[in-house]
């Protein structure tokens, strides 16, 4: 794993204890490493703020709007009763990655 990947794991709270300790020391003593982490955090924040769903924030947070959506959803469900259990099937999955017991390999990535 590269150092940048380690910093990403650190930022996401995914680094193991050993790596956390190592990077913690770097944060204390290395200006360059602090810059890398700060930069990653800025990029993440910018991506977060570019969320298209922020455009519908006022609808999502409007209780009456969501109540209406809920009512319409439930009305549709009640109108069409569920088939018997034997007729059920799993939903089609379009996002399929090749299973890889070794875990992370470049060939698994696009």
């Amino acid at each position: 794993m590269t150092k940048l990947e380690e910093w990403i794991d650190y930022m996401e709270g995914e680094a193991d204890l050993k790596t956390m300790a190592k990077l913690g020391l770097l944060l204390e003593h290395s200006r360059r490493d602090r810059e890398i982490l700060q930069n990653l955090m800025r990029v993440r924040q910018m991506i977060e703020l570019s969320d298209p769903a922020l455009d519908i924030h006022e609808f999502v947070e409007d209780p009456s709007y969501m109540e209406r959506l809920h009512a319409r959803t439930m009305a549709r469900i009640k109108k069409n009763p569920r088939p018997l259990a034997t007729e059920d099937a799993k939903p089609a999955i379009e996002i399929i990655l090749e299973p890889d017991s070794a875990g992370e390999t470049p060939s698994n990535l696009e």
Binding site: I8, L40, V43, M46, I47, I95, L97, D100, N108, L109
Partner: peptide, 25 residues
């Protein structure tokens, strides 16, 4: 779970995406 892939693959895909965006931005 959502992507029907191993945990490490999900994480690796995220890391690669973030690194690319960091570079491009």
């Amino acid at each position: 779970d959502v992507m029907a892939c191993p945990y490490d693959t999900a994480k690796a895909n995220y890391r690669h995406a973030l690194m690319k965006l960091r570079h491009r931005l």
